[in-house]
Structures are given as structure tokens and as C-alpha cells.
């Protein structure tokens, strides 16, 4: 099962990136990486809310969770779970709770990298 799992991660992850490339190359030139990231997290969160992202995660594992749409999926799933547990407050706290490790890691590693390294260009 190991190889198959890796292959699915490769294929689905690759296709998700390919879609991003097509958006950048074929639509307006003003689409920057920032727009792509915002788009993926939002669409991922939305699809997750509609119940459409979990099947992709079941199919492809990291192929669906590593792209930023997977981050959106985690946000939504965290929110939905917290709503079940604590209602309205959960709607506000659940998303960040579920993704806190990633967000904090990005900020801390970003800060440390800035301290340690200089931009080389």
C-alpha cells in the first residue's frame, strides 16, 4: 500500500499545483503568488464546508493536505468540530485551534530565519 499511497499523493498534489499554474499563465497577469495562496485557502475551506474536500483527502492523503487548500480544509473542519462542542464560540475559535501548529511554526521559523540569514537575491 505504501507505493500506491505515495503515487496518489504525487498525482493529486501535482494536479492541484498544475491548476494553480494554469490560473497564473492563462488569466490576468496581475495574479501574484499572494492571490494564488488566498484563492487556494478560501476555496479549500469552502469545498470542505460543502463536504467535497474530505473525499480528496481520503484519496490522496498529503497530496490534498499539503497544498494550501488543505490548510483551508483544516480550518473548516476545526471550526465545524468546535461548533459541535461549544456552539457560537467554536465558530470563532475552532479554525485557529486546529491550525495553530502550522501558523505558529510559520511565524516563528520565519522570524528565526530572518535573524539568521540575509537575503542574497
Amino acid at each position: 500500500m505504501g507505493m500506491n499511497e505515495l503515487l496518489m499523493a504525487f498525482l493529486v498534489g501535482g494536479v492541484l499545483c498544475l491548476i494553480g499554474q494554469l490560473i497564473m499563465d492563462l488569466t490576468k497577469p496581475a495574479i501574484t503568488p499572494g492571490h494564488i495562496l488566498v484563492g487556494y485557502i478560501s476555496v479549500g475551506a469552502l469545498l470542505s464546508g460543502l463536504g467535497l474536500y474530505q473525499p480528496l483527502v481520503d484519496l490522496a492523503g498529503a497530496g490534498a493536505t499539503i497544498p494550501l487548500s488543505g490548510f483551508g480544509h483544516s480550518l473548516t473542519q476545526g471550526t465545524l468540530k468546535a461548533v459541535e462542542e461549544s456552539g457560537l464560540l467554536g465558530a470563532i475559535s475552532g479554525g485557529v485551534e486546529a491550525t495553530s501548529a502550522g501558523i505558529t511554526a510559520a511565524i516563528i521559523f520565519g522570524y528565526v530565519a530572518a535573524v539568521l540569514f540575509n537575503p542574497k537575491g
Binding site: C17, Q21, L68, G70
Partner: peptide
């Protein structure tokens, strides 16, 4: 291009 932007590594 998008291959290194879309994954969470691109966000980082």
C-alpha cells in the same frame, strides 16, 4: 512556479 507556491511550503 505554482508547484512551489501552492503547497504549504510556498506559504512558508
Amino acid at each position: 512556479g505554482a508547484g512551489s507556491i501552492v503547497p504549504i511550503t510556498g506559504f512558508a
